[in-house]
Design a binder for these strands. Structure first.
Lengths: 160, 160
DNA sequence: GCTGAAACACCTCAATC
DNA sequence: GATTGAGGTGTTTCAGC
């Protein structure tokens, strides 16, 4: 779908993206008014951004504590062999508590972000991770207090 | 605002939240139809969820690579003294490349997630972090390939 | 308290220039 | 990309449960 979605973005596209990051439910008329476009033109730009994969979706940001997910941790995976990224992605995505996964440099091979209801629940997730055939051992860093979190840097990278 | 926003959520609220996480631009009529409510009732529930802080906002999910942010890293901060969480939050949020920050257990005191345009840019961010008065040293883990990322676990914690 | 129904205003959307 | 027009949706108001 977004195979080689390196469709170049112009200044208007970037302003529209910034607006939609701030308010994912903004209407096309409001977007257009803010960037100097008519509503249909704004909709075409947004449709194109979604079509090319620049915008991958729209979501509600939820206070996880309200939902009862009060434990958060980073788990490093030390793997045996060199499990293919596709295998890693498949097997880790099958564990719903794993909300993010990346292969990384350093001692460990993979870094996960895990959300659990409490420490007891987190322990069970850890057991599932350790049970994966390619996992040799894990190293956990528990989150004490989340200071802040934001979708992405505000604007264009300075080196652009 | 969402000071003690532990307003209990019922089954309908949770279904609405799940829907809005999957599609943050879903219409009220569609939401209502999916959970067995009229459009006005659905809107009132969503407004209440936003008002209590359960939903903190709506955002577009952007493919950061398209925007030119192709370097991602986790940076551990080893701090001198015990900088107050509020000071940490303020000074770190002032650096736009820091997209997430938490105090954590383990050797380091703080774990950051950083986005940069390239390694050269990342180096400059690292210099800014090292220059913070309370930072003694840093430890960087570079992301090789992001395997996946999702907003949050699908449903209710099992221990709920 | 909550909901559903109706009314109006606004927006979305396809076609056209 | 702007304008137009028809259709649909968001939002409020009101009454009922």
């Amino acid at each position: 779908m977004s195979a080689d979605a390196r469709a170049r973005l112009d200044a208007l596209d970037e302003k529209i993206i910034a607006l939609l990051v701030r308010d994912g439910r903004a209407g096309y008329a409001a977007i257009g008014a803010r960037v100097g476009l008519s509503a249909p033109a704004a909709k075409r730009r947004v449709d194109r951004l979604v079509g090319t994969g620049a915008i991958t979706g729209f979501t509600a940001v939820i206070d996880q504590a309200v939902l009862g997910w009060s434990t958060e941790a980073y788990v490093e995976l030390y793997c045996s062999g060199q499990p293919a990224p596709s295998l890693l992605a498949r097997s880790l995505a099958a564990i719903p508590e794993v909300v993010s996964a990346s292969t990384v440099t350093g001692d460990a091979d993979t870094l996960l972000r895990v959300r659990a209801a409490d420490v007891r629940h987190f322990e069970r997730v850890l057991e599932r991770l350790t049970a994966l055939p390619y996992v040799e051992r894990t190293r956990t860093t528990l989150v004490l207090s989340p200071l802040f979190e934001r979708p992405a840097p505000a604007a264009e990278p300075p080196t652009g």
